[in-house]
Amino acid sequence: MNSKKLSEDIEEMIAKAGLSKRAISNYIFCEIEDNFDDEDNMLRFYEKFKKKLKRETTNVSELKRYKEIILRHPSIRKSQQITPNKLTVGAIPESMERNIRGIAKDFLKELESESE
């Protein structure tokens, strides 16, 4: 995967989750820096992060690392979940369908509680 594609993926994830690049860069900064309460360094990191997403020459391994960190963000994880759509085809009895819906609902609740 090239750096342009990775940058596009990262920007798409950020937009899909409704977050700003600033919020994500702060999240990444806090994950990789020991002194994460330094506002000046956080601002410098944000500026570098924006530039790295624009450049096609950014190191692929660095973008992959950012993507891995971003995927751990609760809002990103939630936006990546697939939401089920009900489709009735009549292939299984209605009672079984209700049971399956109940199981799926419980499963989604469990996933949401894990991400919080």
Rank of each mutant, 00 (worst) to 15 (best):
K54S: 12
I10L: 08
S79E: 06
L108P: 01
F45T: 07
S20Y: 01
A91Y: 05
P84A: 15
K50I: 10
I70M: 04
V89D: 15
S79D: 07
K67Q: 11
N35W: 05
S3T: 08
D40N: 09
R101F: 11
I92P: 02
K52E: 04
E47I: 15
I69F: 02
I14L: 02
E56I: 10
D9P: 00
I100G: 11
L19M: 10
E33Q: 10
S3Q: 02
M13P: 03
T57R: 13
E56K: 14
H73I: 05
S79M: 07
N2A: 03
E97R: 15
K54Y: 02
K52I: 02
E47W: 08
K78G: 04
N99S: 11
F49D: 01
K16L: 12
R65F: 04
M13R: 14
K16A: 14
M96A: 15
C30R: 15
Y66E: 09
L43E: 14
A91F: 05
S20F: 00
K105W: 01
S79P: 06
E33G: 04
F45H: 11
E31Q: 13
H73Q: 09
M1F: 02
R65M: 07
K86A: 08
I24V: 15
E33R: 11
K51G: 05
K109C: 02
G90C: 02
R65E: 06
D106K: 12
V60N: 10
A15H: 01
S75A: 14
K67C: 03
K5L: 06
S79T: 10
M96D: 09
P74W: 01
T58P: 01
I76V: 15
K64D: 03
F45Q: 07
S75Q: 13
M13A: 13
S25L: 04
Q80H: 03
I70W: 00
I82M: 13
E33D: 05
R44W: 03
D37T: 13
L111G: 01
T83L: 11
E116L: 14
L19Q: 04
E68S: 14
F29S: 02
S115N: 14
E114H: 12
M1Y: 01
I28E: 00
I82D: 13
Y27Q: 03
V89C: 11
I92E: 06
D34N: 06
I32M: 05
I82S: 14
R77T: 08
L71M: 15
